[in-house]
Write a protein that binds this DNA or RNA. Structure first.
Length: 917
RNA sequence: GGGCUCGUAGCUCAGUGGAAGAGUGCCUCCUUCGCGAGGAGGAAGCCACGGGUUCAAAUCCCGUCGAGUCCA
């Protein structure tokens, strides 16, 4: 990156000098002319530990001072966004304050909610999960305080580099930081397809803030700037993206050994008390502080070596406190995740929540703390009361989810214990459990390798279990072969093609009940027709496209519309056959398949009603995870932490139908996106986030349900007609799918079910209400008869055995019974043959049933070496045109050449004769 | 979104193509003053469901339903 990017007026003005770090080579700006290193770890140790940088402040004080400072400099203060990034399809969790404004605000499509603005955004990053508690500075959850200015080229500039640096300098000064110790380190930033110059603000060895000047976007092969082999070009917008680490500031003001001791000391004390331990800072103060200072510079392992710390000390003092730190951190993370509506699951963001909570369970176990996790999380929520009172609203739900998760995890482990024992047994011969097995245990059954080690040791310990250090990354690597979904080149080419065509007037919004319209052809290419206005609804929001016809006013040629697409506001009618039959400027009459459209409309409104009812019955954590509307039925996927019971499903259905009967108005209006978000919250975006400045809002009643939605809707809930819940299924852990029909389709669905019952009752000749009892009786009787049948067959077989003995003939000293019996199945033949062979007869028994002949042969135990039943059967079956096999003692087979049955028996006898000679 | 595993007696699970099994619980009898315990016998299975391959499927293949788990 060009050095001129960092030539900032403010630096000159205040007498800063640019230097290059003697250790890492990075450029940095400082007031201290004697300084030689950039000041950042690992070039410098944590000098602030035990020696705070400024006057002690807690998190609330820092946050308020920051927000107030920027407010007094013309910034608008914003409330926090959720930690679940529901408005992003490329992220699960909110990882930075700027993430709130990506991608539409940063790209310039949607104006920012305020400009400039300031926010303190709780963020969650799980990349360094393994380091939490160990490194002394990593947190899963942190608050990124940020002030942002969104500038557009050609428009008046809000502010850019100079003011950003000045604000930072002045804010630090206000806190009382020694300004000679502050360095601004040059560090080009990139992420999420954007990049730009960046200054890291460092003091006391600690990076406190990052000032990013985002003005580049990723391009294909060439551009203005090359960073790490990637080309970038200047954007139309240029954005001030700053991140001040709230926790870092608190830490710097307290100078505690770790960031954890600074942020949640109360939680740490509570956990230490529960574990019956005391903070090592009390007993080993010198060692702990020394370790803490080195933490920024080197890894724990290296520190242990350098300071010559005994492994006993690591095990009994360091590791337990690290677990305490991690648990304190994780309880805060879980509080935000669960309060903001994440449902633990085995996919997507739910999986991340489960990852964190299972890790916490493991650490609690190692600390021998048996207090339920939900109590600890609630404890942490109480500590956060002042800053985040909203978390308290959800303690009931959080409790239920966590205790459920605990039960689930325990079940997984109990099951796992058996599996590990068995696998240990299997690997006994090798004396060592193969890595494959270990990976399989974790990947397939969720058994962490540490647990496998424990179990294997408990159960004898004659199988060694070695866990490689990079175990988890090896697992991750196995899954790494993923192909990323590329942007559809076809859609892209359509976008290029339609760029210059004016936006289509959307009649389906203005006249939702119309079926016909007149329009003018603006363009026709391939098999697409573009009109100046249309009634045809394009596919979107889970609602399928309309179908119908376009009829040119001059000419009889009807064009069948098979699909409709919205490409950046231009609506494309895809027709059957080529579009060159129609001329630009021609007038056409369009007609849509009205029945089909109405069915979609009803189902779309029904979907809003059903999700409203589901939220009422199941709770506010319910979130739409996908939906598809159809003509006959629709489906809606929602997040929920357990199976929906029959009672709950009935209640949802009843509530939905009550909403229909209330006949509330379904209102539609267009509103400024930022205004709407302020008014209704992110609940709006059940079906995704529209990329526009203004959004279409669909409201049921007095804000009973409010959603951003582009679909067609009934004007009153009564028009939806009956809503019938057809079934629920669990498509994934944590996601339930509801199937339902609305309007005429609902009536048809009920009728179809009634028909089933009617027909079933007719077959059994009983009244419908007797059906369950009768079916049960029949099933029981059927089982009874099956048993009786079997015992009768046994009896017949026994009788036949007596008779068969009389048919024995001697062949070369063997008692041979070779007979064809009427209508016996293979099982019956087997029974007889095995009994006869026990009494020293060699048998070949055959029978035909339908168009299939079967054979069983048995050989007495003392003859098995000289003659094999299996060979006899094979020969017989050859003649029967089939195959067979078994053991030397008893074998079975068959074939479909029933006519050859006698010949086959003789062939079998010849095998016996030949062998016994 | 992608991958892996599992579904067999009330329960916990063996069984990898040739007759449906074990442990535990249940029932009956014996032993005992009684309980605990011991002994003998017995009942209990749509091998999740639907197709396919095969002479033959709990077992192999495909689909459906249900459960578990890992990764992005």
């Amino acid at each position: 990156m060009d050095r001129s990017e960092y030539t900032i007026e403010y630096f000159k003005e205040k007498g800063f000098v640019r230097k290059e770090c003697k250790k890492c080579g990075s450029g940095f700006w400082t007031r201290d002319t004697d300084r030689e290193v950039c000041g950042d770890a690992p070039c410098e140790t944590y000098s602030f530990i035990g020696k705070p940088i400024f006057k002690e402040k807690n998190a609330d004080e820092i946050r308020e001072s920051f927000l107030a400072f920027f407010e007094s400099h013309g910034h608008t203060r914003l409330k926090r966004y959720p930690v679940v990034a529901r408005w992003r399809d490329d992220l699960y969790l909110n990882i930075a304050s700027i993430a709130n404004f990506q991608p539409f605000v940063t790209s310039g499509k949607v104006p920012p909610p305020a400009n400039p603005l300031v926010i303190s955004q709780p963020c969650i990053r799980l990349e360094d999960l393994e380091l939490i508690g160990k490194s002394g500075r990593h947190l899963t959850t942190f608050e990124m305080m940020g002030h942002h200015a969104f500038n557009k080229r050609g428009a008046e500039e809000i502010y850019w580099k100079n003011d950003t640096v000045r604000y930072c300098d002045e804010y630090l000064k206000q806190l009382g930081v020694d300004m000679d110790s502050v360095t601004y380190k040059e560090a080009p930033w990139m992420g999420g397809g954007n990049a730009g110059p960046c200054l890291e603000v460092v003091t006391g060895g600690l990076e406190l803030a990052t000032l990013v000047f985002m003005d580049l976007e990723l391009t294909q092969n060439s551009g203005d700037t090359n960073i790490d082999g990637q080309w970038y070009r200047k954007m139309d917008t240029y954005i001030v993206d700053t991140g001040y680490g709230l926790e870092r500031f608190v830490w710097a003001s307290k100078g505690t050994p770790t960031v954890y001791d600074a942020i949640f000391p109360e939680m740490i004390n509570e956990l230490l008390t529960l574990a019956g331990r005391e903070h090592p800072l009390k007993s080993h103060s010198e060692q702990i502080l020394e370790i803490a200072r080195l933490c920024g510079v080197m890894k724990k392992k290296e520190i242990v070596k350098k300071l010559n710390i005994s492994s006993d000390f690591v095990k009994t003092v360091i590791e337990p406190i690290e677990s305490v730190y991690a648990v304190a951190d994780h309880t805060r993370c879980l509080a935000f995740m669960l309060a903001d509506g994440i449902v633990p699951s085995n996919a997507k963001e739910g999986y991340l929540a489960r990852l964190v909570l299972r890790r916490t369970f493991r650490m609690l176990k190692s600390l021998k703390i048996d207090t339920p996790l939900e109590e600890l999380v609630i404890s942490h929520i109480k500590l956060l009361h002042h800053s985040f009172p909203e978390l308290e609203q959800y303690v009931d739900r959080i409790s239920e989810i966590l205790s459920l998760e605990k039960t689930r995890y325990e079940e997984t482990l109990t099951k796992g214990e058996r599996i590990v024992r068995q696998k240990a047994k299997e690997s006994k011969a090798k004396g060592k459990m193969p890595l494959d097995t270990l990976i399989n245990l974790y990947d397939t059954h969720g058994i962490p390798p540490e647990f496998a080690v424990e179990i294997a040791a408990e159960s004898g310990g004659d199988v060694a279990v070695d866990v490689p250090e990079d175990f988890y990354s090896q697992v991750a690597k196995m899954h790494a072969e993923e192909k990323k979904g590329e942007a559809d080149p076809f859609v892209h080419s359509l976008k290029e093609r339609t760029k210059s065509i004016p936006q289509t007037l959307k009649l389906y919004y203005d006249k939702p009940t119309a079926a016909e319209f007149d329009a003018t052809v603006l363009d026709a290419f391939d098999n697409f027709v573009v009109l100046d206005k249309t009634l045809f609804y394009p596919e979107g929001g889970g609602q399928p496209a309309d179908t119908g016809f376009l009829t040119p006013v001059s000419g009889e040629d009807n064009l069948k519309v098979v699909d409709v697409m919205n490409v950046d506001g231009v609506i494309l009618h895809k027709i059957a056959g080529a579009a060159n039959r129609i001329d630009k400027g021609a007038s056409v009459r369009g007609s849509i398949d009205y029945q089909r459209r109405m069915a979609h409309t009803r189902h779309h409104s029904a979907t809003h009603i059903v999700i409203w009812a589901a939220r009422k019955v199941l709770g506010g954590h319910v979130w739409q995870a996908g939906a598809q509307k159809g003509e006959d039925k629709s489906r809606l996927d929602i997040t929920h932490f357990k199976r929906i019971s029959d009672a709950e499903s009935s209640e949802i259905e009843m509530l939905a139908n009550k909403m229909v009967m209330r006949n509330e108005v379904i209102g539609v209006h267009v509103e400024d996106k930022n205004e709407a978000e302020k008014k209704y919250g992110f609940c709006l975006y059940q079906g995704g986030v529209p990329p526009s400045k203004e959004i279409r809002i669909v409201r049921i009643g007095e804000d009973e349900d409010v959603q951003a939605c582009a679909g067609t809707h009934c004007s009153k809930t009564g028009d939806v007609g009956p809503i019938k819940l057809l079934r629920t299924e669990r498509i994934q852990d944590g996601i339930e799918r509801l199937w339902y029909s609305a309007g005429e389709a609902a009536v048809r669905a009920v009728q179809a079910r009634e028909e089933l019952i009617k027909k079933s009752a007719a077959v059994l000749r009983v009244p419908q209400e007797k059906l369950p009892a009768t079916v049960e009786r029949f099933f029981e009787e059927w089982k009874q008869l099956k048993k009786e049948n079997e015992s009768l067959r046994d009896e017949i077989a026994e009788l036949r055995v007596g008779w068969l003995k009389g048919c024995a003939r001697a062949i070369s000293g063997l008692n041979v019974i070779a007979e064809i019996l009427p209508d016996v199945d293979t099982k019956g033949l087997l029974k007889m043959a095995s009994q006869l062979s026990e009494e020293n007869f060699l048998t070949i028994l055959m029978s035909k049933k339908g168009n299939r002949a079967s054979v069983v042969s048995s050989v007495p135990a003392n003859q098995k070496d000289s003659i094999s039943a299996s060979e006899v059967v094979k020969r017989v079956c050859e003649v029967l045109g089939g195959g067979g096999g078994g053991t030397p003692g008893i074998a079975q087979g068959g074939g479909d050449k029933v006519a050859n049955i006698e010949e086959a028996l003789l062939a079998g006898l010849r095998v016996v004769e030949a062998k016994s000679l």
